[in-house]
């Protein structure tokens, strides 16, 4: 009897070790990634929200700020520029996304799919150039491109056919903001879509040809439905990246010309928080603006998942063998 009672002890110790070992490997594997996410993503997000609850600014410094609750959010809600900046943001994101990052990227991917491997490669590399060009240089190039005579390329060319030159970026700021961001952004979707198209078996197009589908019907009925997942990914990813990227607008129109013509949310936040014209940068208000932007991005993502029926895309197949 005594021997029987003594027996479980070492076994239990073994079990504890097993549990520990079982728990250790997930921690070891996930630990580094969790730490990185916590340090680089969660912590800044928390700090942003915390700062947004203060009146922290250059005037208060790090010692004299006060906790003001959600007053910053109230100020945003009652800002006379809220509607204008929101409208600009939606216009900027939607136009760039639809026309270039998804639309033009799709056109490029579908067209290059029909070129030889080599020609398609050259073409795609050309479209990658704006992405790997330093943004300051690219923005300067576009400013010179659009500049008034006798410097601007557009003005020079149009001058040859008698069209009077002026600063085209001031005349059509939105066209330039959207096109510049679109030229940079289109290559991302193009690469994603191209690889997705390359993954569609050639037999499916041959079968469609045998069944009498025209080139357009092949694109519409075979290529595009198979790109639903990549289009969702590019749309969601690029929405977030457009919402937060303002460097090309900063470097070209800087929110102008005139008053807030092309001022988008992230640029507005930057101007208030880090580059106030009057010298008093309002960190608290800027942080609140950033927090609102995160919520806007999350909301847009949720809408996309619903629109593209994400649940259906990841549903497991039901295979029945007979």
């Amino acid at each position: 009897m005594g021997a029987l009672e003594a027996a479980p002890a070492p076994r239990r110790r073994g079990a504890v070790r097993d549990v520990l070992r079982g728990a250790a490997s997930p921690v070891l594997f996930l630990g580094p990634a969790v730490l990185l996410i916590a340090a680089l993503f969660l912590a800044p997000a928390v700090v942003t929200v915390v700062i947004s609850l203060t009146n922290l600014s250059v005037a208060t410094g790090l010692t004299h700020y006060r906790w003001i609750g959600v007053a910053n959010y109230g100020q945003i809600a009652h800002s006379p520029w809220l509607v204008l900046v929101l409208r600009n943001t939606v216009l900027y994101v939607a136009a760039t996304l639809v026309l270039f990052n998804v639309g033009f990227a799709l056109v490029l991917a579908i067209l290059t799919a029909h070129l030889s491997e080599r020609a398609a490669g050259v073409f795609r590399v050309l479209w990658m150039l704006p992405r790997i060009t330093p943004s300051v240089i690219l923005a300067l190039m576009w400013r010179w491109f659009a500049a008034e005579p006798p410097y601007g390329t557009v003005s020079q060319v149009l001058g040859l056919v008698g069209i009077p030159g002026h600063n085209w970026m001031n005349a059509h700021p939105w066209a330039f903001v959207v096109a510049l961001n679109g030229f940079v952004g289109a290559s991302f979707g193009m690469i994603i879509f191209s690889s997705a198209i390359a993954g569609i078996p050639r037999d499916q197009y041959l079968a469609a040809q045998v069944d009498g589908a025209s080139a357009w019907q092949q694109v519409w009925r075979i290529t595009l439905p198979r790109l639903r997942w990549p289009i969702l990914f590019v749309t969601a990813y690029q929405t977030l990246s457009l919402l937060t990227s303002f460097e090309y607008i900063l470097l070209t129109t800087n929110g102008g010309p005139g008053f807030y013509t092309t001022e988008v949310w992230s640029l507005y936040a930057f101007h208030l928080a880090l580059s106030n014209y009057f010298g008093n940068t309002q960190f608290g208000l800027g942080a609140a603006l950033a927090a609102v932007l995160v919520v806007l991005g999350l909301g847009a993502s949720l809408v996309y998942l619903r629109v593209f029926r994400f649940g259906e895309l990841v549903a497991a197949p039901r295979i029945e063998v007979n």
Binding site: P201, D203, Q204, L206, A207, A208, Q209, V210, D211, G212, A213, R221, I222, P225, R226, R228
Partner: peptide
């Protein structure tokens, strides 16, 4: 064209369209 010739073809891989139901696959032509 295949359409003008009036041929029906079955491919080795079957080449079914994965995003369409069986009904829509058959209805495709």
């Amino acid at each position: 064209t295949p359409q003008e010739r009036g041929v029906g073809m079955v491919f080795q891989s079957y080449a079914l369209y994965p995003h369409l139901t069986v009904f829509e696959n058959i209805a495709f032509p």
